[in-house]
Simulated scan of single mutants.
Amino acid sequence: MAAQGFSSSQRSENQFIAEKLREVGDLLKQQGATQFRINAYHEAASFVATLPQPIRDIYTEHGEKGLEDLPTIGVSIAAAIAELLDDGSLSVIDRLRGSADPEELFQTVPMIGPTLAREIHETLHVETLEALEAAAVDGRLATVKGIGQRRSASIGYALNEMLARRRPSRPKHAMDTPAISEILAVDQIYRDTANSLPSIKPRRFNETGERRIPILHMERGHWQFTALYSNSAAAHKYGRTQDWVLIYFERDGHPEGQATVVTKHNGALEGRRIVRGHESACAKFYGL
């Protein structure tokens, strides 16, 4: 019997969220992800589907921390549920389907229109609002043409307001990001095995409708990684669709992050694979 006050619309919302989580698990299974990660989404979907109260009520009262405290729901899945409750959509599904459009996503941020969204994406190669916020914090966003320090601060403030309810409940620290050596190792494995990996069919820049972007899911240590070639306008413009690699990472107790690995074409790191925005750390890694 449903809990008192649990309306049919609220029950439907729980079922909607459960279906989306189950879809993520199914896509991960099709693409060869680790069984642990597949099971995490399927178990969370089953839990939400049978939850005897509206999950939105938990989120409204306790925020993302309240979702994290539920059985089978960790930090990453709590963030996914929060995104579904806030936006009605889930960016990880778009990514796994090949239908993600970062430029469209960035236009949901005040002060960012189509032209600026394109400039941000082509310059920074970030794909998510969380990655865009990180770029505002570390100064990369201010380097984008047409932005500057003052506008970057304003965009950062707007992003903070938008993402506040999804903010991790624990303070960030250095271990939130894998070591440069780990990111570069995943990049190497991805490029070495790309021809044998499952592929996705991107919605953008794909007139023939073919499955042409290999996708890798793997686990290294405590980290779960997903890697795929960039499908950005800039990657196509500069002929880097087989060079620029987007790497997403997460681990238990930490939110998802993103790195972009490219071949450096000038300076002391010329010809080497580097993590954009972390050139100094890469130089240290290479002993330069």
Rank of each mutant, 00 (worst) to 15 (best):
residue 113 G to T: 07
residue 61 E to C: 09
residue 131 A to N: 02
residue 49 A to P: 14
residue 93 I to Q: 08
residue 63 G to W: 02
residue 115 T to W: 06
residue 33 A to N: 11
residue 35 Q to I: 13
residue 106 F to C: 04
residue 141 L to S: 00
residue 43 E to W: 09
residue 69 D to Y: 07
residue 139 G to Q: 03
residue 101 D to G: 10
residue 72 T to R: 11
residue 85 L to I: 14
residue 72 T to S: 11
residue 80 A to C: 09
residue 85 L to G: 02
residue 40 A to P: 05
residue 80 A to I: 03
residue 68 E to N: 07
residue 136 A to D: 07
residue 65 K to S: 09
residue 100 A to Q: 13
residue 42 H to V: 08
residue 135 A to F: 00
residue 117 A to F: 00
residue 124 L to V: 06
residue 106 F to T: 00
residue 108 T to N: 13
residue 61 E to V: 10
residue 75 V to C: 13
residue 97 R to V: 12
residue 109 V to W: 03
residue 37 R to C: 09
residue 98 G to K: 03
residue 66 G to H: 07
residue 28 L to Q: 15
residue 139 G to T: 05
residue 63 G to S: 00
residue 46 S to R: 15
residue 58 I to Y: 08
residue 117 A to K: 01
residue 132 L to A: 03
residue 102 P to I: 06
residue 36 F to H: 14
residue 104 E to C: 05
residue 84 L to C: 04
residue 123 T to G: 04
residue 95 R to F: 11
residue 70 L to F: 02
residue 93 I to S: 06
residue 31 Q to I: 05
residue 134 A to L: 08
residue 138 D to M: 01
residue 126 V to L: 03
residue 66 G to A: 04
residue 140 R to I: 03
residue 150 R to C: 00
residue 39 N to H: 15
residue 131 A to T: 05
residue 118 R to Y: 01
residue 44 A to D: 08
residue 64 E to G: 12
residue 104 E to D: 10
residue 29 K to H: 14
residue 123 T to Q: 09
residue 35 Q to A: 15
residue 91 S to W: 11
residue 146 G to S: 02
residue 110 P to T: 01
residue 62 H to M: 12
residue 34 T to Q: 14
residue 123 T to R: 10
residue 82 A to Y: 15
residue 30 Q to A: 15
residue 107 Q to W: 02
residue 61 E to K: 14
residue 77 I to F: 04
residue 95 R to I: 15
residue 118 R to H: 06
residue 116 L to A: 02
residue 51 L to P: 12
residue 43 E to V: 05
residue 106 F to D: 06
residue 101 D to T: 06
residue 120 I to P: 11
residue 110 P to G: 01
residue 102 P to D: 02
residue 33 A to H: 11
